[in-house]
């Protein structure tokens, strides 16, 4: 069975390591915060200006002055800090944030990512995505393997305007965990019950498949 969004978030959460500062993008990446493995401590950064982002507030306790980068009302954890946008991106550009998780419309086998623009149709802007992907050492992309028309989004070359080049190291989709190295996708894990054949058929980019592909343990 292919994973749902929660499943993708749970699998990405397994990548978290104790002591990391982590930036989560909008959408599936936001869900990762709900599945931090037991026994480790991570701190979430939101690029609009908070370290130590907490859960959503209780009803009636929302504060218009306290939001995340998705403009959702949030809370601040004990030990949190607030800062301006230049400081926030200094943290990101200066590689003080250990992991960035974000969504994508397309990724390529060279590690390119496209997630901000569909020419003539949708132009919302890149927000902080270009700064994040250009600077983070460790980027995990959370995305669906194919678009609604069934076409692969795991490509040899991106067709949409790029957000960053050669930056994505790992991709988690509803079907698989893929690593990008030496200009190819490498199949690391498959979703429970998903066949290697299905993953191969839905991956347009070059895919290296080892003899044994373990199932994800969620």
């Amino acid at each position: 069975m292919a994973l749902d969004k929660v499943g993708i978030a749970k699998r990405i959460a397994q990548e978290l390591q104790d002591g990391w500062y982590v930036n989560l993008g909008i959408g599936i990446p936001t869900l990762v915060a709900n599945y931090i493995p037991e026994g480790i401590e991570v701190e979430f950064q939101s690029e609009n200006g908070i370290l130590g982002m907490g859960a959503f507030p209780f009803e009636g306790e929302e504060d218009a002055d306290l939001i995340n980068a998705g403009k959702q009302t949030i809370t601040a954890r004990k030990g949190a800090s607030f800062f301006d946008s230049a400081t926030s991106f200094a943290m990101i550009r200066g590689q003080h944030v250990q992991l960035t998780v974000l969504g994508a419309m397309e990724v390529s086998q060279d590690g390119d990512i496209a997630n901000w623009k569909i020419p003539g149709k949708m132009v919302k802007g890149m927000g902080g995505a270009m700064d994040l992907v250009a600077s983070a050492d460790n980027i995990i992309v959370a995305m669906m393997h194919s678009n609604k028309a069934g076409e692969s989004k795991i490509l040899k070359k991106c067709t949409l305007p790029l957000t960053g080049v050669g930056c994505v190291k790992k991709v988690v989709t509803e079907l698989a965990v893929l690593e990008i190295k030496q200009g190819k996708f490498h199949l690391l894990e498959r979703a429970p019950g998903v066949s290697v054949e299905e993953i191969i058929s839905k991956t347009e980019g070059d895919l290296v498949v080892p003899e044994f592909v373990p199932e994800m343990v969620l």
Partner: peptide, 15 residues
């Protein structure tokens, strides 16, 4: 007319 700029670059350009 629209000039879209990466958020960190926008902040730093103002700074």
């Amino acid at each position: 007319e629209v000039d879209l700029i990466p958020q960190g670059s926008l902040a730093e350009r103002c700074r």
